[in-house]
Amino acid sequence: MIRDITLGQYYPENSIIHRLDPRVKIVGTLVYLVSLFLFKSFWGYIPTMIFLFSCIHLSKVPFKHIVKGLKAVVMLLMFTLICNIIFTRGEVPLFEWKFIRIYPEGLRTAGFMGIRLTLLITGSSLMTFTTTPTQLTDGLERLFAPLKLFKVPVHEVAMMMSIALRFIPVLLEETDKIMKAQQARGADFEEGNIFQRAKAMVPILVPLFISSFRRAGDLAMAMEVRCYHGGEGRTRMKPLKYKGRDFIAYGVQLLYLAALILVRIFLG
């Protein structure tokens, strides 16, 4: 059933990582992503892996579940690996066949990039596994709040994001309904080449657009009825508040960053 789709990939569990303030997790993910690009030698992977695996362990998200999430990017990963192996030039080729020459340098870069990409994806998906979409938008709203000084409509953008998240399943269900209605009248979405199939999508998209506009109008009215008037003078039901554990987490992030900077200085 389409309505069972849980949005994003939130994995409900009651762990310390899940309970952390979303702002800590967003900042932590950024720190982690930056840290991956700090070093050029394999030594750097020791602290990053220790950091990542302890986070995964603390989050209680099963490792299998995380690996499953990687499946979606296997193609991208393979593509990067092959490109790196083929196109990196060195001095002494290891292997030669027609125009393909493979150098040891190529294998090294490919390995390095492969590990980096895998860690990058695992790290950022850990955040979406442990944070609900609502928490994420709340966290982003608070983190970007200073931009309000420059007249960036932070609250409004966050509200738009959470409404979009709320309506994705509703619209999916609607698409399903429209497709069935069109199929019942003889529309064919499965046959023909890619252009014909793309063309067959038009009679789905048009009614979908029209009904979304109608929905948007209704929703705007429902929001007005409930006294929505922008972010001004608004209180929160679940305000974000830093607790002791959040400051500790920030401390850990700082230590981690410091460790990697040391690796960069002494080991390259």
Binding site: D218, M237, P239
Partner: peptide, 30 residues
């Protein structure tokens, strides 16, 4: 006011958060 289409008047992703939407707008303390 409550409208006809139940889908188009629930604004947030969790039941209790949606119910809290009105009071939030009115500036009621947490």
């Amino acid at each position: 006011m409550v409208f006809q289409n139940p889908d188009n008047q629930i604004i947030l992703t969790v039941v209790e958060e949606d119910v809290g939407f009105g009071p939030e707008n009115l500036g009621v303390p947490t």
